[in-house]
């Protein structure tokens, strides 16, 4: 498992789209430029759509990894207000 030090962590297991992205986006909004958000999620579609949507919004996807049978770990760096 990758170890990137994050400034904020959210667990959005159990949530489905679009609330997965809504939660992730609100978390990013509350952070400073350059800070890193760590997200744990278990919705497969979101493991693809959140990274894509974050890139569309100008944020940097640092790392995405399936960490067990059900969960993904995702690191996003805030590059844009």
């Amino acid at each position: 498992m990758s170890r990137i030090s994050s400034d904020k962590k959210i667990d959005i297991k159990g949530l489905v789209c679009p609330y997965t992205f809504v939660k992730a986006k609100l978390a990013i909004e509350s952070m400073e430029l350059g800070q890193i958000l760590e997200i744990v999620l278990d919705h497969e579609e979101a493991s693809r759509s959140i990274p894509r949507s974050m890139e569309d919004h100008g944020q940097k996807v640092l790392h995405l990894e399936k960490i067990n049978d059900s969960d993904w770990l995702l690191y996003i760096r805030k590059d844009k207000e």
Partner: peptide, 15 residues
């Protein structure tokens, strides 16, 4: 969050 989710996900709106 549920009520306004379609607004929040718009880049021009957001939280």
């Amino acid at each position: 969050l549920q009520r306004y989710s379609r607004h929040i996900i718009l880049p021009e709106v957001g939280g």
